[in-house]
Design a protein around this nucleic acid. Structure first.
Length: 835
RNA sequence: GGACGAGUGGCGGAAUCGGUAUACGCGCAGCACUUAAAAUGCUGUGGAUUAACAUCCUUGAGGGUUCGAGUCCCUCCUCGUCCACCA
């Protein structure tokens, strides 16, 4: 079918011209359906993964449209990002030119798929009309006190003098300099307080129609732990360097999820970055500690988190008092305790925690058992589960769960502790020391900084926003100055000292403070591209709006997204950030809904024919452009649907796609000849199959079972092919196949004399009488084994069936000699005689 | 190490609430068409025993629940994905 391409081109042009896929904003229509696929990064080529995401998704969108919904199915480009900058450095082409060249190539490829996209709503995140609103969003978060600047540890390449993204760190080394170890360096970065929303992000997961796995991944990422904070008084306080201790800070606070094991805490451990490290060091230990802490900083991320690594640590010389039993216990420093979780300090209970156990063994620290497992103690291992509390004074005999509560309450009474909840999730670093991103629209003004620091402006007087007040000197650009445009630049290499290439643009950096008019310097960091993609789904509702990121009415008409389809690799970051954005914007009064994506589905991964991930080095890449040229888009679309479970993916088969090609060729052949020869007679058997298929295909698409939907269409056509069809039967079949093979369906639909597109038709309705009535094969089992079957009407009742079955010779033969104990009858399916 | 998911013909994969295991497609074999091949069409295609009718076996391994288990429960093996010193 070499003319598949011709037919496809022809109809794509007609659809484009007649604008049948332009979506009207029906502000009050309840039948609006917002169907969204994750917008692609314009890398230059549409690959199989894109097709697998977009083609079956389009089947779903087309189906929804035929079911009567006003479907919005937009597309755009996630156009900022590192690859453009790397291409710029390598090929001496401006990132903008590289990006837009790729976009126009990919737009063409996307159009060859024959999707339902409304191109008039296309959004490109690198466009100033778009990133103006990305900047605006950032400022709204800043205003609300959800953005702040803070020193954080980042991957640092000493050779490049530059910050590296996690994916640029390979085996603990810089990707450009494999001989250079990456270290952790403190860098001033803009952060978003996603942790403020931890509880809400966790709780609202229950409301979402998302894959369970994805919800679990988000849950684990948020990582809520309930436990207690406990204060341990420092015992040899008088010997320590008190001048460096904060006032009244004569204790170390730890977080534990196991307060029930408090009596078994035989030492404390603080992180090397803990603020009390200096103060706790006794004279004798000072040198060792300095050495250890310096070393910990030099360690690569890889080394510090490697599991195989033996525990290391150093004694501070200081002691603390276990509040439970007044025992004096040593305070240690070790990098197995993380500064950015909990309080940066732990109470170590080696008898009941694996890490503490390992540490205690290595440094010969005491191990005290306070939980009775109620069975044999594991050999040379800690016992980490719950049990009966022992050796614990008044709490002896209480079980773990109860003990946690009781001991915490007891601590609370003595003012030595309280219940506490901790999260693994950290705030989101959105600063990037890079060129090709949306500039962070903020300036630093020393004058304003002094004013705030000297208390000359108060929090309540409206002169400064909450964010500005909390980050003295960092003044937001006024809305009317947005977008803060990327300056033209020729050199895109990072600036030494870890600054963005933007620092080279003097005209850009030098600015006037919008508050006081004095000299100020502009922030040169750009935003993480995840910021761009955290709100793009809002823009599609009203992509050309100049006054607002989107009109309120239009937002309410379309959002939240009714069905979102894309890769599982975004299960945490993109999907979590988007949820955070929507919640924060809702809180500030800009949105009226609290979740961006009501329903979510993931496509699987298409592997090469060898079952391996497709990659250039393996040479197993299948190029969708070749498929379109060789077989046509309809065949490619349908094969992707047919391959297997949508969420599973699987290996590509170059012979498998031939099956679909043959199938479509047969349809082509059948429909090409019978224009003039319709049957008038109704074929009951065909009618029954046709109606069952309408039901089956509809339900399958609704449940993302595209593979079985295609199989049902094949079964139907295998029968139709041999029959003389009526015109109505032909029409119905074309409608059923229209979402899968939109071009082919359109071609023959018009050949049947229809003036309007098949894609404006509605999904056929099935007649329930064809489902309920008729005959079926009743299975006859004896003792659960299939022995016979008989074709019976669905109208027969149990007694009639039993009589019929028991009178059959084959059954009599099997029953002979036995006694019937029980007869199980499953209507519409089987009868089982138990002897 | 942890969390989650999956193991079904030669291959991709079907199988509703526990109710015909192997739908649909690929591949393979035979036949037809053809000088021939390709394409296309028709027929067959899990295994064992049998001339045949039939009978038995079979969903990673082993056990259990049930009239009946690919599906539910327990133990184990293998693979995949994500997370990873989070106290």
């Amino acid at each position: 079918m070499r003319n598949a391409e011709k037919i496809e081109k022809k109809w794509q042009k007609v659809w484009d011209k007649s604008g049948i896929y332009k979506t009207k904003d029906r502000v009050k229509n309840k039948d609006n359906f917002y169907h969204l696929v994750m917008f692609p990064y314009p890398s230059g080529n549409l690959h199989m993964g894109h097709w697998y995401n977009y083609a079956p998704a389009d089947v779903y969108a087309r189906f929804k449209r035929m079911k009567g919904f006003n479907v919005l199915s937009p597309i755009g480009f996630d156009a900022f990002g590192l690859p453009a900058e790397n291409a710029a450095i390598k090929n001496k082409i401006h990132p903008r030119d590289w990006t837009y060249k790729n976009i126009s190539a990919m737009r063409k490829q996307l159009k060859s798929m024959g999707n339902i996209y409304d191109w008039s709503r296309e959004v490109v995140s690198a466009d100033p009309n778009y990133y103006k609103w990305t900047q605006w969003m950032f400022l709204k978060l800043y205003e609300a006190g959800l953005a702040y600047k803070k020193k954080t540890l980042a991957n640092w390449c000493p050779k490049d003098q530059a910050v590296l993204a996690n994916e640029q760190v390979i085996d603990g080394r810089c990707w450009r300099h494999p001989d250079t170890l990456v270290i952790q360096k403190e860098i001033d970065q803009w952060m978003l307080k996603i942790t403020d929303y931890a509880d809400e992000l966790l709780a609202d997961l229950d409301k979402l129609n998302w894959p369970e796995r994805t919800k679990i991944m988000q849950k684990n990422w948020i990582g809520k732990s309930e436990g207690a904070k406990v204060k341990f008084l420092i015992s040899n306080f008088q010997f320590l360097n008190k001048s460096q201790l904060p006032k009244s800070q004569n204790y170390i606070e730890v977080f534990t999820t196991r307060p029930d094991t408090l009596f078994g805490a035989t030492y404390l451990v603080i992180a090397p970055e803990h603020p009390l490290v200096e103060s706790l060091a006794t004279k004798e230990q000072k040198e060792d500690i300095r050495h250890y802490v310096a070393n910990a900083h030099l360690k690569t991320e890889l080394e510090r988190t490697s599991l195989e690594r033996e525990k290391t640590g150093v004694f501070t010389g200081a002691y603390a008092v276990n509040p439970a039993n007044e025992e004096k216990i040593p305070i240690w420093i070790s990098d197995y305790v993380l500064m950015n979780y909990g309080t940066g300090a732990i109470m170590a209970v080696p008898a009941h925690d694996e890490r503490d156990f390992e540490f205690a063994k290595k440094f010969n620290l005491p191990i005290v058992k306070v939980i009775d497992p109620g069975r044999e103690w594991p050999e040379n291992k800690p016992y980490v589960e719950g049990g009966l509390i022992v050796n614990s004074g008044e709490f002896t005999g209480v079980n773990s769960a109860e003990g946690r509560k009781k001991i915490t309450e007891w601590l609370k009474e003595k003012n030595l502790g309280d219940f506490s909840t901790q999260y693994k999730m950290r705030d989101w670093i959105v600063s990037r020391q890079r060129y090709w991103g949306a500039p962070i629209p903020i300036v630093f003004c020393k004058h304003c900084a002094d004013k705030i620091r000297n208390g000359k402006s108060n929090a309540g007087n409206n002169e400064f926003s909450k964010g500005e007040f909390e980050n003295p000197g960092w003044i937001a650009a006024p809305e009317k100055n947005l977008p803060v445009r990327l300056p033209p630049l020729k050199n895109f290499k990072p600036v030494a000292g870890g600054k963005s290439p933007l620092a080279r643009a003097k005209n850009f950096v030098n600015a006037k403070c919008p508050k006081c008019g004095k000299k100020a310097t502009r922030e040169t960091d750009t935003m993480d591209t995840f910021v761009d993609s955290s709100w793009y789904f809002l823009r599609y509702a009203d992509p050309k709006n100049k006054k607002r990121f989107a009109d309120k009415k239009k937002l309410n008409a379309w959002l939240p997204v009714n069905m979102y389809i894309g890769g599982a690799e975004h299960a945490v970051m993109h999907l979590l950030y988007s949820r955070f954005f929507v919640k924060a914007l809702k809180n500030s009064g800009y949105l009226e809904f609290g979740e961006p994506f009501e329903a979510l589905r993931h496509q699987g991964i298409i592997l090469g024919t060898d079952g391996q991930k497709m990659s250039k080095s393996r040479g197993n890449i299948v190029d969708p452009d070749d498929l379109v040229e060789k077989y046509g888009a309809d065949t490619a679309r349908m094969y992707l649907c047919f391959m297997g479970e949508y969420s599973q993916g699987g290996p590509w088969s170059s012979t498998g796609i031939l099956g679909i090609k043959r199938f479509l060729d047969r349809i082509y052949a059948k429909f090409s000849i019978f224009n003039s020869q319709f049957s008038n007679a109704e074929n009951q058997e065909l009618q029954r199959l046709l109606h069952q298929t309408i039901k089956k295909v509809g339900e399958d698409i609704e449940n993302f079972r595209f593979n079985t939907a295609v199989s049902a269409l094949m079964i139907l056509f295998n029968k139709m092919e041999k029959e003389n069809l009526s015109k109505e039967e032909a029409r119905t079949f074309l409608k059923l196949i229209a979402p899968f093979a939109p071009h082919l369906a359109e071609e023959f639909w018009r050949n049947l004399g229809n003036k309007k597109s098949i894609h404006l038709e509605s999904w056929p309705k099935y007649d329930p009488k064809f489902i309920k009535e008729g005959d079926y094969d009743l299975l006859i089992q004896i003792g659960g084994k299939l022995r016979d079957k008989v074709r019976v009407s669905k109208r027969l009742d149990r007694v009639e069936i039993e009589n019929l079955v028991l009178s059959r010779d084959a059954i009599k033969k099997h029953i002979a000699g036995g006694e019937i104990k029980k007869i199980i009858f499953v209507p519409g399916r089987l009868i089982n005689i138990v002897l």
